[in-house]
């Protein structure tokens, strides 16, 4: 039984209006390559790694990183995707809907999981992702790779690999795509 108001489409953030291009496509690609090398260096190879992209922005980045790591290390690095809708701490405060079911390609116990997301800001998404990951086994370690770190952290969470640190205002919005990184507002 739906009333008028409940039937109205929810505000999902609005439409992104870019104000400035921060990184171009080549910059993004170079940053990914750098992050891939940092991952290999820090983990002394690619053995036991599993990449998990966070829905939705982290998924294509995780897939790119996976192919980069596969070509560097010579063996396939499995990649999954995770939807953290059911783990958010702001349920009911805004519309939450999983885009696609979570897919974890391997038992995580004993593995090193690299969570991949496009942007880190408050850290709440990552907190939810850490909660979700625990339900798939006890990873040996979890590391975090992001393309953009906006600051504004509300939780003690820090990215291990960062494409670009980008100081922003809270009301600004950052959009990451294959075409680069843009900063602007939701209108």
């Amino acid at each position: 039984m739906s009333t008028e108001a409940e039937s109205a489409p929810p505000v999902m953030g609005g439409v992104f209006a870019a104000r400035a291009q921060v990184l171009g496509p080549d910059d993004v690609s170079r940053a990914l390559t750098r992050i891939a090398h940092e991952i290999v260096e820090r983990n002394k190879g690619t053995a036991g790694l599993v990449l998990v992209g966070l829905q939705t922005g982290g998924v294509p980045l995780a897939e790119s990183l996976s192919s980069l790591l596969t070509s560097i290390g010579g063996q396939a690095v499995p990649v999954g995707r995770m939807d953290i809708s059911f783990y958010r701490d702001d349920l009911g405060l805004r519309p939450v809907a999983p885009e696609e079911a979570t897919f974890i390609p391997a038992d995580l116990t004993g593995r090193v999981v690299i969570l991949v997301d496009d942007v880190i800001c408050t850290g709440r998404t990552v907190r939810a992702a850490l909660g979700a990951l625990a339900d798939y086994g006890r990873a040996r370690a979890v590391q975090l790779a992001v393309m953009v770190d906006r600051g504004h952290r509300e939780l003690p969470i820090k990215a291990d690999y960062v494409g670009k640190n980008l100081p922003t205002r809270r009301d600004e919005h950052v959009e990451v795509s294959a075409g680069g990184v843009a900063i602007g507002e939701l209108v």
């Binding site: 739906s2 409940e6 519309p95 939450v96």
Partner: peptide, 10 residues
Amino acid sequence: LGSGLPTGES
């Protein structure tokens, strides 16, 4: 209870 999603087509 959780999603905040709109209900179906009225």
